[in-house]
Simulated assay, not measured.
Amino acid sequence: MSTKVKLQEVRMKKGLSQEQVANLLGMTQSNYSRKENGSSKISSNEWERLSKMLDVPLEDIYESEEGNLVIFKDNATGNYSGINNIYSIPKHIEQLLESQNKYIAKLEEEIKKLKQL
Rank of each mutant, 00 (worst) to 15 (best):
V5Y: 08
L7F: 01
E9G: 02
K13F: 08
S17E: 08
S17D: 05
S17H: 04
Q18V: 04
V21N: 04
N23V: 05
N23E: 14
L24E: 15
T28R: 07
Q29P: 09
S33P: 05
K35P: 13
E36Y: 00
N37M: 02
G38K: 12
I42T: 03
W47E: 14
R49K: 15
K52R: 14
K52H: 08
M53V: 04
V56N: 03
V56G: 07
V56Q: 15
P57F: 00
L58T: 04
I61G: 00
Y62V: 09
Y62M: 10
E65W: 08
E66T: 15
E66I: 11
V70C: 06
I71R: 12
F72T: 06
A76E: 12
T77Y: 13
I83D: 00
I83R: 14
I83F: 03
N85C: 07
I86E: 05
I86D: 05
Y87E: 08
S88M: 12
P90Y: 00
P90T: 00
P90A: 00
Q95S: 07
L96T: 05
E98A: 06
E98M: 10
S99C: 13
Q100P: 10
N101K: 13
K102D: 00
K106A: 12
K106D: 11
E109N: 06
E109T: 06
I111N: 05
K112R: 13
L117Q: 11
